[in-house]
Write a protein that binds this DNA or RNA. Structure first.
Lengths: 233, 233
DNA sequence: CGCGCAATTGAGTTATATCAAATACGGTGG
DNA sequence: CCACCGTATTTGATATAACTCAATTGCGCG
């Protein structure tokens, strides 16, 4: 597997100040003086599809703020079962549990080309002591993750298989900025919904026959959100 | 339904300082000086089983720290489906979403006799500005809620019905301090696991026939955790 | 062009939901 | 204290949905 690229040009916070998506990331509320408190390099990293930011059980010492791409959080059970418990995209944080000194709760696996900034826990903790401006950002992201998890339970782990698939497609569609959205493999969709690959495939195939779902390329798709919502939710 | 009792004797933080379970609640890390920053009354409240702390969609302006009892968080979908997404007990916080100015994500319903302290959001926010000692407590509780939600997905919403019931019983057992634990109604257990009341009943009945589960009183039960774990997880 | 993996499809099996009935249980009032 | 009522639970029969297994098709990539 190819090693992830690290662009170490981001020394200190010089480029953070001018980050194109600063309004979306954790540092959005920092002031100019706050940025001057960042004395250590922040690594800008890129990962290929399939690469992992970290593994479940790994002792991680950084939080990752996601600049681009899509990441799945996979949780394994002792008996071999596994479940995808969340998807992360632009503006989200991966590895939040490191702020409590816990080991990683999940594998963080890239679904497509992913760009992140790696923020050492020590930096976050120091900033927290020196400025209150990080707080609300952390709180917001924690809350977003939590309400995402709740929705995952209520919408994606409840009801019949077709219904769950429909809800997942709607969720992926809403999260997308353009008309199309990232369509995971049937296996991954199954792991998100707690159903088998075959059941997922049967549902998407049916939607496609009804003209409610169209595939474009291999990982992109379009849905008729209105119709899907009405007929299957 | 009986009105909840509010013991308004807790003026300011006088009694907070001497709270018997202070080491378990949000204010555990506050210093003596910090307590002096609390200038408003903190209500000590008691709720009967079945009463709600708040409703999904309600605009809440307080967080509740749980001193005793068990609370279920119930989330409703537009189509009428509903799911219990979490259980809260001593030391947990209910209504965290109010800190982001959001309306309540769930109904918070008491399962047994519940005692809470009501902490106004304005108080939390002021304390956050004035002292850093609240932070870690908030972070810890948010993280606990999040990892609880993840487990709910992976352990309680995955696999066959009997397996889920077994995992739920083990979880309830572990959370308990004594040999026995609170056994929810079959209906509630079903709503936690995403299965029907009847399926839940068939599973518990089977465990009981095998001598792995014994009921005591109506809401209390005992399990042979070892055997249950080995045979059904 | 063909190889390999992913996706689709179908047939048969199993698990769960559904519906209905019977039983147990707690709480109330006589 | 006991009888009764309403609710929760258990149980069984049947229908339905999902899983499992196997075979086929489709598709991207070398």
């Amino acid at each position: 597997m190819q090693i992830d690229k690290i662009d170490r040009a981001w020394r200190g916070a010089e480029r953070c100040k001018h980050c194109a998506i600063r309004h979306l990331v954790l540092f959005s509320d920092l002031t100019h003086e706050d940025f001057d408190r960042i004395h250590q390099p922040i690594d800008d990293m890129e990962f290929e599809p399939g690469q992992r930011l970290y593994y479940q059980g790994e002792n991680i010492s950084s939080v990752y703020t996601i600049r681009a791409g899509l990441i799945k959080l996979v949780q394994h059970l002792p008996n071999g079962d596994r479940r995808i418990v969340r998807l992360l995209s632009q503006g989200d944080l991966a590895g939040l549990e490191s702020l409590n000194g816990q080991v990683a709760d999940h594998d963080a696996v890239c679904l497509d080309l992913v760009q992140v900034c790696r923020l050492p826990v020590s930096l976050i903790q120091r900033l927290q002591k020196e400025t209150p401006n990080l707080h609300q950002g952390l709180i917001n992201r924690w809350q977003k993750a939590l309400s995402g998890a709740d929705n995952w339970i209520t919408r994606l782990s409840t009801g019949k298989a077709r219904q769950r698939v429909a809800r997942l497609l709607l969720l992926l569609d809403q999260a997308s900025t353009d008309d199309f959205f990232f369509l995971p493999t049937r296996e991954d969709m199954g792991a998100m919904l707690g159903i088998t690959t075959e059941s997922t495939s049967k549902a998407t195939a049916e939607f496609r026959r009804l003209g409610l779902l169209k595939k474009l390329g291999q990982n992109r798709a379009w849905i008729d959100a209105e119709a899907l919502q009405q007929q299957f939710c």
